[in-house]
């Protein structure tokens, strides 16, 4: 199946397909995507250069001109990291319920309906197991296109189960974060997913199974304040926005503009919260080397034990 996708949201929350502009923050529907022939042009939000979707995909969705990392989702990350894009998806059928019958301007159920239709995703995270350069791994990856990558019960549960799967099989775990935070429409239930995922990570930690947390643009709120910051290795993509409070909230609180580069991946390295920044094109190799080095030791230990 060669389903190309067309519109890639940029850092500023805008989508810029080359040929038409779509309303802020809304992805093109899947139907639209299918109608579009290949060789769609995308405009790099950073350098404004036009790139075909095919070229972009060949370059792991990194702008060849200036290295800008386009926002991508689980489908693309799975393709990039799993050997030959082959994987087994875990807990695929989990779907959001609406336990609180939450209604704001519109019911949560219609927000969900809309997201299910436009994204063809079941929720804001997919988890899978497969091989990365021959190493068995588990990857859980968030999808920002699904209600802003917000964490509700489904995201929390899928992460919890992915962690359990990694722990039981002793497979290294990679969680790729991309989220606006907790899902408000599930209120305290979504808050408790922070405790749940962190508790599960405590067990993974005890079991000595490696956990790489990949922070991508953007990672904020409850996701930052739980699993995303708990990696044995916290790794970020260049330029990614990473923080607890969102920039707008901070700006309102302090009443002035934020310094340039504040809450960027580079800023977090500088302040000691991220181990290193990785270019998406080198990600797979670097993760493989890192996990490989850890495995060496583990194997030797196991033999003597």
């Amino acid at each position: 199946m060669d389903t190309k996708f067309v519109s890639l949201p940029c850092n500023k929350g805008k989508i810029m397909p080359w040929f038409k502009r779509i309303k802020d923050g809304i992805l093109t529907s899947t139907d639209e995507k299918k109608e579009v022939p290949e060789g769609i042009w995308n405009k790099c939000p950073s350098c404004k250069k036009a790139i075909t979707t095919r070229d972009l995909e060949d370059n792991n969705f990194v702008c060849p001109e200036d290295g800008y990392h386009f926002r991508i989702g689980s489908k693309q990350y799975f393709n990039i990291l799993f050997d030959d894009g082959i994987f087994t998806e875990l807990d695929k059928d989990l779907k959001a319920a609406d336990p609180l019958k939450f209604i704001d301007k519109k019911p949560y159920t219609s927000r969900l309906q809309e997201a299910w239709q436009t994204t063809e995703l079941n929720d804001a995270l997919r988890s899978a197991t497969g091989k990365m350069n021959g190493i068995d791994i588990v990857i859980a990856c968030m999808d920002f296109s699904f209600i802003g990558g917000s964490m509700g019960s489904v995201v929390g549960e899928k992460i919890a189960r992915a962690i359990d799967y990694a722990r039981i099989h002793q497979f290294p775990l990679i969680i790729i974060s991309k989220s606006g935070g907790a899902r408000m429409m599930e209120a305290a239930l979504s808050l408790m997913q922070m405790a749940k995922t962190s508790a599960k990570l405590a067990l993974l930690d005890q079991a000595g199974v490696p956990f790489i947390s990949l922070l991508t643009d953007p990672t904020t709120g409850g996701v930052t304040a739980s699993f995303a910051m708990l990696g044995d290795f916290n790794v970020a993509e260049p330029g990614a926005l990473i923080g607890f409070a969102g920039p707008r909230v901070i700006k309102e609180t302090i009443g002035k503009d934020l310094p340039k580069g504040f809450q960027s991946a580079e800023f977090l390295v500088e302040h000691g919260f991220v181990d290193f920044i990785v270019n998406r094109k080198e990600m797979k190799e670097k993760f493989t080397h890192l996990l490989g080095m850890l495995q060496e030791g583990t194997k030797a230990k196991k033999k003597t034990a």
Partner: peptide, 18 residues
Amino acid sequence: GLEAEERGQGEAIARNLR
């Protein structure tokens, strides 16, 4: 705030949860 972010508010809370 600025300082809270610089000192890793997210990490501090996350660590406590774990």
